[in-house]
Nucleic acid binder design. Structure first.
Lengths: 346, 346
DNA sequence: CTGTTAGCGCTTTCAG
DNA sequence: CTGAAAGCGCTAACAG
């Protein structure tokens, strides 16, 4: 009952070997495209494999061979379109290789993050893609020391010198702010993202730099600290509009919060863009579909995913990290949520 | 250079065992929470594991133990919010177990689908979650025969008797159609989903039944075959509106196509809902945010993911399939894209 | 309660 | 070019 090869049971290289009349080592060679196999023999083995419906056991291969042909993707959560776009890019790129993808969600728990990284780096996966890492310092050193392949996505916190792909957050925020200034806005509210993320800081800095360049005082009361979620966009807009001297435009650090702003403004009976101009960041698909369509800073999310996957694959192949940090350009997408404040008169 | 345990190298149960002064079997027992270990010993081993930074190798565990503690998720693609919602539900549920999630994207290739299933069922994962399977017939039999645990999500094609979670598509479409009829619409256009999917058929049937119930002739020219993507919603709306006697309402089989309908109607200078009422299906987040917010049939996507994951976990635990098919209720969400056709006069 | 003994299915030297 | 042998790190009966 033990070695009885039932028809529907798993087929191992041994069975294939026996059927094909070769040793199992040869079968292994065929599987691994080893050159040292006579074409004739290879064909015979290949046919047998097909006939028997042989499927190599990845666990075993990885145990014996030392690599898993799997990469791990660590994301904070799955709640927003933002992550979805990035995953899509990664998936696209991976579909051309034969790497599998294991998905880990940290649910915004820094502890879980470090924990996962430790586990994953321990044989489960060959490389790691870390989206929006919270506390990379906790493990980047370990990873680097061990020479474990990884790429950071959308992170620009510490000045660590490691592979990462991000977007020109500073530039994007600067451009958008400047655009509002050129429309004639002088009181521009700003809602930040989670300030423990590098990108949030960069966006805030870009906003401030634009103001400075145009000699507009940077009033602290016009900056509201948000967290990238819609409710905070709503709250931020309310806070800003409640000011004695409210802003004529609000720049939210992402589209999701900008939608919260839209709601808040509408609920107060004000119109967009006539009364208040609104700008977002990311250019997630919804931003074009809401009413009014939101002027936003496009972040090439899907491309970021693709590029990151490419980088990781390269590192895996060459066994050395080549490029260090790639910044993909952001672009201002002007839609209908912004106009000159002078329009009010009209 | 071979067995030299460098400080930063991987720690195995052997090292832990040696350090703790027990046999490696005991360490294994501790890892697996086996009851047969003296509390005292367990503590000592646990401490040693911690100190040495031991992390169990999943590949090895799975090879030896015959299970991987990983489940596979097979989705057609990552392009739509639809899948995202489902994944979120699955992820939520999984976060309470210690199962890992491997993500496979078939990119709508039926061949790839069957292929993946074959591979996965071969040791890579302990169970399979299949979202919107294209050609389940290709492998359901194999899976069932092998008693391989799996759950189908949003599939109601063949009458196969296997674990699945879906929504009351027929009921949802019936209710929505009836709602339009009660508003006074008599010519109601319908844009189907991919007709190779069971849910599409059910929705079409629900639509037809509602018409029949209310003695409204079911005109074939009012049904346009779509594919669930936005462009087809656009095309479908154009085709329907080009009819000699165009419909006063259009019911699209999902929200994404409904958005295409919105575009098409607007591009023709007609207003929603004044000139044309529009109804969608799914209730993806965007549907509430576009202009005008779309009346739609809510499908509990996130919940479907959760329930499916629960079912699979149960099957995995009890090693038997318990429940067979769960239908989660749909619900009509009335928003601003629908009104009585008589409003035109107003 | 704990140690011993076999493998899981495959990759990899090392000899032919 | 091909076979034999030695593990990869761990689980799972068996004996104590």
């Amino acid at each position: 009952m033990k070695t009885t090869p039932k028809t529907s049971a798993k087929v191992t290289i041994f069975e294939v070997a026996a059927e094909a009349g070769v040793s199992f080592a040869t079968v292994s060679r065929v599987i691994n495209n080893d050159v040292h196999v006579k074409p004739e023999t290879r064909q015979r083995v290949l046919k047998t494999m097909q006939r028997l419906g042989f499927v190599a056991n990845r666990q075993a291969r990885s145990l014996a061979g030392g690599k898993s042909n799997t990469i791990g993707l660590l994301v904070p959560d799955l709640g927003t379109a933002y992550i979805g776009e990035i995953i899509r890019g990664i998936d696209t790129e991976l579909s051309w290789s034969d790497l599998d993808l294991i998905l880990y969600t940290t649910h915004r728990t820094a502890a879980k993050e470090a924990n996962y990284v430790a586990n994953l780096a321990h044989g489960m996966v060959d490389g790691l893609l870390l989206v929006l890492p919270r506390n990379p310092v906790d493990y980047i050193e370990t990873l680097t020391l061990r020479k474990f392949p990884f790429v950071l996505i959308d992170h620009q916190g510490t000045a660590e010198n490691c592979p990462a792909v991000g977007a020109t957050n500073w530039q994007g925020a600067y451009t958008a702010t400047e655009y509002l200034i050129q429309l004639g806005h002088e009181r521009i509210g700003f809602i930040t993202g989670s300030m423990d993320l590098g990108c949030s800081e960069d966006r805030l800095k870009g906003y401030r730099s634009a103001l400075r360049t145009h000699h507009i005082p940077d009033k602290p009361e016009l900056v509201y600290e948000g967290d990238f979620f819609q409710p905070d966009g709503y709250a931020g807009a309310c806070a800003l509009l409640d000011l004695e001297n409210p802003p004529t435009a609000i720049f939210a650090s992402n589209d999701v919060m900008a939608m919260g702003v839209l709601d808040a403004v509408r609920n107060r009976g004000q119109r967009i863009p006539d009364d208040i101009s609104v700008v977002g960041f990311d250019n997630i698909p919804q931003s074009a579909m809401v009413y009014p369509p939101i002027t936003t800073v496009q972040q090439p999310l899907e491309q970021m995913g693709r590029v990151a996957a490419q980088m990781l694959i390269n590192i895996l192949k060459k066994n050395e990290k080549e490029s260090n940090r790639i910044e993909l350009p952001t672009e201002l997408i002007v839609r209908s949520s912004t106009s000159s404040p002078r329009d009010r008169a009209g």
